[in-house]
Design a protein around this nucleic acid. Structure first.
Lengths: 192, 192
DNA sequence: CGCAATCTGTATCAAGCGATCCACAATATG
DNA sequence: CATATTGTGGATCGCTTGATACAGATTGCG
């Protein structure tokens, strides 16, 4: 009953995410996006409504791919400390790429929060999900006696997520993973 | 030999800083600024060159007032731990104001680093100054035996600055000082 | 096969942007 | 007091922006 869409929506969102991530929201124009995606403006607006809609789709894509991968990796470590260490190092590694693009969610928080209330919800949800996942890993580790119980798991997890935000900002200012790794070790000392 | 400038340049920069801080660079228009400052566009451009010039002046104003105050307060504490605790809490308090405006320097890092190389230098200088000031406080405290020497002062200081960045981002996402204060205590445990 | 519905790409729109121009006001200097 | 020089603010410029209109292409369905 109608013509078929010629482009892969998810692939388009993924490429749009890369551009928003690298340049930021305001500095990315709709024409930049159409050129990168090889689309006419009509197609883009028909598929995503407006620039904001595409950005929200990109942020959501970030959440279900990159952010979700990081949380999955938390389950794979031999112990809590090394699992968290690996996760933080991996986030830093990604953040320093492309001349320090940082983290799309942190960038969104800094650039778009004053204007866009819906972004706050999404970013906060991502933060909460990270905190809860880390808290669960810490809870199990504390039960096993792998880590000291100086602080409760939820507070520790909130600390680690906030510290991660700091790492991602520092990665933008100085995109050098080797300079940041020692800081991870200091943060992990909070588990002792 | 010529007409006198009618407005106070520093006061204008200070008010411009407030607007950039609250709204971000791109979302602040030159007309917003002229209206807030009560200036014609001619006056603004004659005084600051362009929008970028005014932004750079605002960032510099932030450095010599707010950021410098924070470093001065480091010298006033009874001991290193309480001095750092007070400084971090004060930065958080300021960051949660105005619906979580955060920190102008961190906002600049996230929003303007991809486009503006000169901002990177300024932000990095501010970061380095904070780190060095904290390192010096820690060095003295370590000599006195007030804090343990598990990590060297420079690494500890870099950790604290990065953690502060995280606090300022978290303050944007969830502008609630009481939720952030416990995290400061966890970070300070790194000094033990 | 024909029709209706959707997609595609280009041209185009109105609005807002940063920046400049300019006529006029104010003032330091001789 | 006269004059050269600078500040002032509103009008205006050229451009880019996000968004839309539209004509043609493509498709599923009767």
């Amino acid at each position: 009953m109608a013509r078929t869409r010629e482009f892969d929506t998810e692939a388009a969102v993924s490429r749009a995410m890369e551009l928003f991530w690298t340049r930021g929201y305001e500095a990315t124009t709709v024409r930049d996006l159409t050129q990168l995606l090889g689309l006419g403006q009509g197609s883009l607006y028909a598929a995503f409504g407006d620039k904001d809609g595409l950005y929200r789709a990109a942020l959501e894509h970030y959440r279900v791919t990159l952010a979700a991968d990081a949380l999955r990796s938390l389950q794979e470590g031999a112990d809590a400390r090394s699992a968290i260490r690996t996760m933080l190092a991996e986030r830093v590694r990604i953040a320093v790429e492309h001349e320090g693009r940082g983290c799309l969610a942190v960038n969104a928080a800094c650039e778009r929060l004053p204007q866009d209330a819906s972004t706050r919800r999404v970013v906060r949800d991502m933060q909460d999900a990270s905190r809860d996942a880390i808290a669960e890993v810490l809870r199990v580790a504390a039960e096993r006696g792998e880590i000291a119980a100086r602080h409760d798991p939820h507070t520790l997890a909130a600390f680690l997520v906030t510290f991660l935000h700091g790492l991602l900002v520092s990665a933008k200012i100085t995109p050098d993973a080797r300079a940041l790794e020692p800081l991870v070790e200091v943060a992990l000392a909070a588990l002792d």
